[in-house]
């Protein structure tokens, strides 16, 4: 068995012993992160240590930098021209902001689910097989298996197993979003970033995605940006509150929502602004 999997098993066992955040290893360690879009200072001195195999929620009003931050974690933020960063984000002992770090490698290990479901205009099968294929997996049997496991992992297999060759655009919005999650799972990342994954969905589909996130955290570290505070309270272990590009507070979700240390957090949570 591979080293990778052994490590996962150990972490798995740890969790049963003691359900405290201390037992978790850190997956992303952000130190003094600053980010500018041209002249706009979008992230200011961010320091965050995000745990493995947990759901970490990032909340805050729009324009607070939460989306920018999550896109920095897989360097998708670089698609915007004129972005500059300082500071470091350590992932697996390496600084991912370092120019020598290959973004393709990073993004292979860190999956992402977007605000609006964005399946490719291809068949359901091809959507899932896309990731494995671009990473050189061509064997039809292996692909078949990956497709099934991934769809099962995203709890959408039963709904689509009879129409794998149909265009993904025929699915409902909620199904499309779960398909996008399945597409992430197909390359077995370590982390899944979710950027307001339910903001375009109805309550029923939202619930399904939330349940899915709960299930997935057994195997994956999940970081979710949301503007829905109930959602953060329902599904996350830890919550970070962002305001004007700064982390105001980062703690156990319970603490954030019941006994926040900062007035601004309390104001936001009680709906006084945002």
């Amino acid at each position: 068995m591979s080293m990778l999997m052994e490590r996962k098993m150990t972490v798995e066992n740890d969790k049963h012993v003691k359900k405290s955040s201390n037992s978790h290893r850190i997956v992303y360690d952000t130190k003094d992160l600053n980010l500018w879009y041209s002249n706009t200072h979008a992230l200011k001195d961010i320091n965050l240590a995000i745990n493995e195999k947990e759901v970490t929620a990032i909340i805050g009003p729009s324009g607070c930098g939460k989306s920018t931050y999550i896109k920095t974690l897989n360097r998708m933020v670089e698609l915007v021209p004129g972005v500059r960063t300082t500071g470091s984000i350590t992932y697996k002992n390496k600084n991912i902001l370092d120019k020598s770090f290959k973004v393709e490698d990073l993004r292979t290990q860190v999956g992402m689910v977007f605000q609006k479901a964005n399946p490719f205009p291809k068949s359901i099968y091809e959507n899932i097989a896309y990731g494995p294929k671009i990473h050189g997996i061509r064997n039809k049997k292996v692909l078949d298996e990956i497709v099934e496991t991934s769809l099962r992992g995203a709890y959408i297999w039963d709904e689509v197993k009879d129409r794998l060759n149909e265009n993904a655009y025929g699915l409902s919005g909620g199904q499309q979003q779960r398909l996008c999650i399945a597409r992430c799972l197909a390359i077995q990342p370590d982390v899944i970033l979710m950027d307001e994954p339910t903001s375009a969905l109805d309550p029923k589909s939202t619930l399904k995605i939330e349940e899915l996130a709960q299930e997935l955290k057994k195997d994956y570290s999940i970081i979710i940006v949301t503007h829905n505070m109930q959602q953060a309270a329902r599904i996350s272990d830890k919550t970070a509150f962002f305001l004007n590009g700064e982390v105001i507070e980062f703690d156990d979700t319970n603490t954030i929502f019941t006994n926040p240390a900062d007035n601004r957090t309390e104001d936001y949570i009680s709906g006084r602004f945002g």
């Binding site: 998708m76 290990q109 992402m112 609006k116 294929k133 671009i134 990473h135 996008c180």
Partner: peptide, 19 residues
């Protein structure tokens, strides 16, 4: 957002363009 989805899977630029 289609290109974004592809880049987020670790695809390179040419892979994204071609596929």
């Amino acid at each position: 957002h289609l290109a974004e989805a592809s880049y987020a899977m670790g695809a390179t630029k040419w892979q994204t363009i071609r596929r």
